[in-house]
Design a binder for these strands. Structure first.
Lengths: 121, 121
DNA sequence: TTGATGTTGACGTTCAATGTCAATTCATAA
DNA sequence: TTATGAATTGACATTGAACGTCAACATCAA
């Protein structure tokens, strides 16, 4: 896949023409066409993608795909990463965690939720 | 603190003048002065900071401080964040984990190390 | 009082990202 | 077969963040 193909797929699934989407975004449809055909040298920014996400009412999965294909990071995740920047232990923690498979992560998440709950008292 | 003050502190601790550092970086010292006095509208990029880190032989702590003050993210952490972009379970996991205090994170990290070790067999 | 260091005004440049317009082509339904 | 809506493409232009320069001036310690 690519950003362009992903965008096109999503746009079509919402039954919108390039012109319609361009109108919603307030820009020329020529640019959209280029994006969809990956004729633009650099992938759009996070902000640009978020505008699309809003205008097309994308769900979390579609949003994630677009961000991923463009190599951009969600604002929330960027904040998390920035926090890890200042907390060495978090830094190490994250780097280890990425290596684990889905099941393990889910298990650990539950564990964390409980830890948090326990503290609330 | 601010990026400028942090940079100045680190530079001075390495006994370098602005001119010396500017030479190492291959740029004009005027720019460095501006940076140190936070007279530059936008904080330097990660790449720029990494050049400083190299030229001043900064340790991990100094590097983290500079990146943090500039609101930039370490390359490794960015990769981790990007991976989380594509793995919803990781996304949730990270967002939960940030809430935990140091001790808990350290404990969990040990747990993860063991999980990884166990799989190596 | 000179030499090293730092500050500042006033610019200039680069590059990623965003955007435009008009000519053309493509798809398809009347 | 042709009109119409949709998409593609060449050939630009614009914006904004980041990076950078030069020279004049200021500060200060030896």
């Amino acid at each position: 896949m690519s950003f362009g193909k992903t965008l096109r797929e999503i746009r079509r699934s919402k039954d919108k023409s390039q012109r319609e989407l361009a109108d919603l975004l307030g820009l020329d449809y020529g640019y959209l066409s280029r994006l969809e055909n990956d004729k633009v040298q650099f992938n759009p920014s996070r902000d640009f993608i978020m505008k699309i996400v809003v205008e097309l009412s994308c769900d979390d999965d579609e949003k994630a795909k677009l961000l991923m294909e463009a190599g951009r990071i969600d604002v929330d995740l960027e904040k998390v990463a920035q926090e890890a920047n200042t907390r060495p232990e978090l830094n190490v923690f994250f780097k280890s965690a990425v290596k684990l498979p889905v099941e393990d992560i889910i298990e650990l998440t539950e564990q964390i939720q409980q830890m948090i709950k326990a503290k609330e008292k």
